[in-house]
Design a protein around this nucleic acid. Structure first.
Lengths: 213, 213
DNA sequence: GTCTATAAAGAGATAGAC
DNA sequence: GTCTATCTCTTTATAGAC
């Protein structure tokens, strides 16, 4: 996958190959996307497409690698100067969700189609994904050790629950809608940490109790 | 999709077609699964497979319809005699998650491959899915109206967060592991309602504060 | 209900010219 | 860098015998 140019140079075909592939892979899934469709959307022939990649699977591989590189880099950088265990969770969720929803084609492809890779490419990407998830596990386990998270569940389960809360979003989120990535990140952080229910001592029964019958 | 026999009759090929198709669809995805592999795993020829279904897409359609029928029926039945808003959320989550993780091949196929349907079959299944999600939305909105859930987020966002927490599980859960469906359902209900963090007034600083340096 | 045989279309990928 | 032309393999699906 080519580096994204920092200058305001024109978008080259070499760049578009990757973004358009990610678009199609998210829309239709990796296997249902044909090189014919991809070439058509790029306005080049199939043969020209093979000037940029050796094989279709290289597109999926490149997208997965770049997806994991971006989210890992962003999260690591954001966490580097945050010390409080709860604040580290907030930072992690915000960074992960904003990254995922900003480059949603790329990340949805990684999350949902990664398992279609084969051989060494599969092994390498799975390793990178596991390394990233170990970061998430670490933030949660540290928060639990520090007494910021409850200990009525294992750290692994607490981490899986957080990944659930973050990752399923890519199956329904539509950029351009009213809900901005950061807003949603704040809501799920709030729910994950504090829960969605009204704290019982704050309930005022004379106001909130539902009408009987 | 054939009705599941209530008696202890032998498992027929007509039944196995559906369970084995769901297995393969979850393992490899709908498009990556070939009728050759399916026939091979069923120990019949491809031609014989077409005695049971008219086309490959009918398998996906039947699996999606049955998945939604089962989870809707189970949840509706369980909710029918539960009145408390919080208890209705507990019941919903438990029922949804236990159903999903028990028949995981079927439900994972529905959740992840539903969009590969086309035409009327797609429209019908999407309608059934939206009807089920309206049930979830209703339980959440009612709880919020009753004052059991906080109002700092919209009911739709609260419902989406809950679906996140429940549905991503099918991407990583492996039946037979140490974590039982009901246990995990209880954990995510707890986190959704009460949050994962330690309630601040219960923190004992002399015990829980992390060691400095 | 299951088979052999085959049709018909769609897929990934390459050769070699410009 | 992009093209035309083509190869080769895979895929879904059907016809018709047993």
């Amino acid at each position: 996958m080519p580096k994204q140019s920092g200058t305001k140079a024109a978008v080259t075909t070499a760049d578009r190959v990757w973004t358009v592939a990610a678009q199609l892979f998210r829309e239709k899934g990796y296997h249902a996307t044909t090189t014919r469709e991809l070439a058509e959307r790029l306005q080049i022939t199939r043969a020209s497409l093979y000037y940029y990649v050796d094989k279709k699977e290289d597109l999926l591989y490149g997208i997965c690698v770049e997806s994991l590189r971006r989210v890992s880099t962003a999260v690591d950088a954001a966490l580097s100067d945050v010390v409080g265990p709860t604040e580290r969770i907030r930072t992690l969720v915000c960074c992960h969700v904003v990254s995922m929803l900003t480059d949603i084609d790329m990340h949805a492809t990684m999350l949902l189609d990664l398992h279609h890779l084969t051989g060494d490419q599969l092994r390498e990407v799975v390793k990178a994904r596991d390394a990233y998830q170990a970061t998430v596990d670490g933030v949660i386990a540290d928060a639990q050790s520090a007494g910021a998270l409850r200990s009525s569940f294992s750290p692994k389960v607490a981490s899986l629950a957080l990944l659930n809360l973050m990752n399923w979003t890519i199956t329904w989120y539509r950029p351009g809608g009213p809900l901005k990535p950061q807003q949603f990140a704040e809501v799920i952080t709030d729910i994950y940490l504090n829960g969605a229910s009204v704290p019982s001592e704050l309930v005022d029964p004379t106001v909130c109790r539902p009408v009987a019958r």
